[in-house]
Design a protein around this nucleic acid. Structure first.
Lengths: 110, 110
DNA sequence: CAACGATGCATAGAGTATCTATGCATTGAG
DNA sequence: CTCAATGCATAGATACTCTATGCATCGTTG
């Protein structure tokens, strides 16, 4: 019903996931938790967005996955960055930064 | 072919258009030019994105349009903000700012 | 021990927004 | 008279996210 408010800025999810994984390998549920917590609840990652995104990242070879047992003793898939993923994170972060600065210019200067 | 680089951050186009129009009523071509120039060529607005976006903004009642003659003596449709559009710009700008700050937290803190 | 909340994975379908490609028309400059 | 720049607009493809749904396990609590 309430379609007026997106949960996150489109096009940034993969970058956020890569960033979280660059600090610590963890499972999908953990990724969502961390993004939500660190952003003070501003960013919410829905499962229906998260898991497809992780599949895409796997396909592109930017993350790899391994089944393990989670802290709460459940089967969970732990994701971690590959070398290509690390590189990609750098590329995306830089490109994002440029975008933001350009948008800021328009919003202030234009 | 080159699909690796998006021209702008998805979800920000309407806000950028509203911002440009909040300073001066102008035609579609002029909007695209201004965004591109002010952003130092980082942001490029394709016509195939721009005109559909303007249609959406018209439908929502955030901008209104009027056929006039452009500076270069051509028929052109001049768009300007409505009161609702002004208000919407404020809403979107604020929401965008919150998003950016939240993303920055994740990218630095996470 | 049964019920329930939290943890955990994943897909299908819909909706939205953007891009590429295309078409058309006019003006002014060379 | 030809061409670049100016100007509007749509169709189709693509990409990304969301809602809704389904399943399963663990630990706690009544």
């Amino acid at each position: 019903m309430n379609k007026s408010k997106n949960d996150l800025l489109p096009g940034t999810l993969e970058m956020l996931i890569l960033r979280v994984l660059s600090l610590q390998a963890t499972h999908g549920y953990g990724i969502a938790q961390r993004i939500q917590q660190v952003s003070d609840d501003v960013l919410r990652v829905e499962e229906g967005s998260l898991y497809p995104a992780l599949q895409r990242l796997l396909l592109k070879g930017w993350v790899k996955a391994e089944w393990k047992t989670s802290e709460s003793n459940r089967r969970a898939r732990f994701y971690s960055l590959t070398a290509a993923g690390k590189k990609q994170l750098g590329v995306e972060a830089e490109s994002f930064q440029r975008m933001i600065e350009a948008i800021a210019k328009v919003m202030q200067t234009a």
